[in-house]
Simulated scan of single mutants.
Amino acid sequence: MNRYALAVRRWWTVLLAYVLLVAVGGTMGDGVLPVPTLTGGMAGARVAYFTPVLVVIAVMYCLDRRLPSAESTAVVPVRRLDQAAVFLTAVLAPGAGLLVGMDVARNTILLLSLGLVAWRLSNEATASAVGLLFLIANVMLGRVHDGMGHASHTWWALALYPGRSVGAWLVAAVLFAVALKLSAAGPRGTER
Rank of each mutant, 00 (worst) to 15 (best):
Val91Asn: 14
Gly31Pro: 04
Arg79Phe: 14
Ala129Met: 03
Pro52His: 07
Asp146His: 05
Ala157Asn: 12
Arg164Ala: 14
Ala168Gly: 12
Leu98Thr: 11
Pro162Ser: 15
Val171Leu: 01
Gly149Trp: 04
Ala45Asp: 01
Gly26Ser: 04
Arg10Gln: 08
Ala85Met: 15
Ala179Phe: 05
Ala45Arg: 05
Glu71Leu: 02
Ser152Thr: 09
Arg79His: 15
Val86Asn: 12
Ala151Thr: 03
Gly97Met: 05
His145Gln: 03
Ala96Gln: 08
Leu114Val: 11
Phe134Lys: 10
Arg106Gln: 14
Glu191Gly: 05
Ala84Asp: 02
Leu92Asn: 02
Leu180Ile: 05
Val100Leu: 07
Pro68Phe: 07
Gly26Asn: 01
Val35Leu: 09
Met60Trp: 12
Arg120Phe: 10
Ser152His: 03
Leu20Val: 15
Gly147Ala: 13
Thr154Gly: 00
Val117Pro: 01
Thr13His: 10
Thr39Phe: 12
Gly163Val: 11
Pro52Ser: 06
Gly163Asn: 09
Asn123Lys: 06
Leu38Cys: 09
Met60Cys: 14
Val19Glu: 15
Val100His: 02
Val86Cys: 12
Ala5Arg: 06
Ala157Lys: 11
Cys62Phe: 10
Ala184Glu: 13
Glu71Asp: 00
Asn123Ile: 06
Cys62Lys: 05
Arg79Tyr: 15
Leu111Ala: 07
Ser152Gly: 07
Leu175Ala: 09
Tyr49Pro: 01
Pro68Arg: 02
Asp146Tyr: 10
Leu182Gly: 02
Tyr4Phe: 12
Phe176Tyr: 14
Leu112Cys: 04
Pro162Phe: 11
Leu182Asp: 12
Ser165Thr: 08
Met1Gly: 12
Asn123Cys: 08
Thr190Lys: 08
Ala84Gln: 06
Val174Lys: 02
Val35Asn: 05
Ala7Arg: 11
Leu92Asp: 07
Ile109Gly: 04
Leu20Thr: 15
His150Ile: 07
Ala17Pro: 14
Trp169Lys: 01
Ala17Asp: 10
Ile136Pro: 00
Leu54Met: 10
Ile136Gln: 00
Tyr61Gly: 06
Gly25Pro: 11
Gly31Ile: 01
Asn138Ser: 11
Leu170Glu: 00
Arg120Val: 00
Ala70Tyr: 00
Thr13Met: 10
Ala129Leu: 07
Leu6Gly: 10
Ala129Gly: 00
Leu6Met: 03
Leu116Val: 03
